[in-house]
Design a protein around this nucleic acid. Structure first.
Lengths: 143, 143
DNA sequence: CTTCTTGCAAACCCTTTGCATCCTG
DNA sequence: CAGGATGCAAAGGGTTTGCAAGAAG
């Protein structure tokens, strides 16, 4: 707990942003979530601890965190901004029926790309793979 | 031209939708576009040929086309619905600076996944790869 | 003729912004 | 204290919907 507060303070100092109560709770709540929560979902959770917080503040700080590299924005298939909560290198399985998105570990997926320069001099940072298909639940449903 | 009209009629018949003037022009305009046009961009073009058309009609028909499998919706990094105009198997290079999206041929990318069932019984239909990085233009700009 | 489609405007959802107030550094 | 952060409400994009009038089959 002391550690977590400390590292959050450090993160803020590194990025030149103030350590506010809202910010800290937001950070901790997000860290504790899994998957790809929407701003509304994050807001709902944070509100339990800081009832007076506003959605706007949640949005502003999610952007701030993303810009600072604290969290990563994921390639959205959802209709809203999503943040990546999974620290492990992974990709996504997207259900074409119900749009559910599930993580799949990089190793488990088993790709073998890795070039760092492509056509037109595009400089590669990373690969993000979406496996489009049908999830188990929807396969059941259509049987 | 006769051919194109004919194939559009067939498409409509196969999907049980009426062949309207708007629909036909929309289809032809979309077929003639490249990249990942937004509904507004499509609307602007169609409007030149059918001035009275409404944005709502464009939206309704884009959805219809996507549902019928005439066009494919692409995994959006843009903030709006985009449709895939490239018939060749390909993936996308997404610039992390300017968000520009460029197609890259499947062969050129050279990935080799291809399994058809993954964790949790997920049934694979296809892979969609986003190569995240910096485009040539933005590399220049930051020099 | 009946049903599907269009166009228009209002409604909606998600997100951003302006501004006065409040808090951190 | 000064500048940044918050909360609120209003504004903004993109997209959808309800409905009357108009085409398609």
């Amino acid at each position: 707990m002391v550690n977590e507060s400390k590292s959050f303070r450090e993160i803020c100092q590194e990025n030149g942003i103030a350590v506010t109560h809202q910010r800290q709770v937001l950070y901790e709540v997000m860290k504790s979530m899994h998957g790809h929560p929407s701003p509304e979902e994050v807001y709902a959770r944070v509100k339990k601890k800081v009832p007076a917080i506003s959605l706007a503040t949640v949005y502003k700080n999610i952007h701030l965190f993303v810009e600072s590299g604290v969290f990563r924005k994921m390639s959205m298939h959802h209709g809203s901004v999503r943040v990546e909560m999974n620290d492990e290198p992974h990709h996504h399985m997207v259900c074409s029926k119900c749009s559910a998105i599930t993580d799949i570990g990089e190793k488990e997926l088993g790709l073998v790309p890795k070039r760092n320069r492509l056509a037109d001099g595009f400089l590669v940072e990373r690969y993000s793979v979406d496996v489009i298909g049908v999830c188990a639940k929807c396969q059941m449903a259509s049987t």
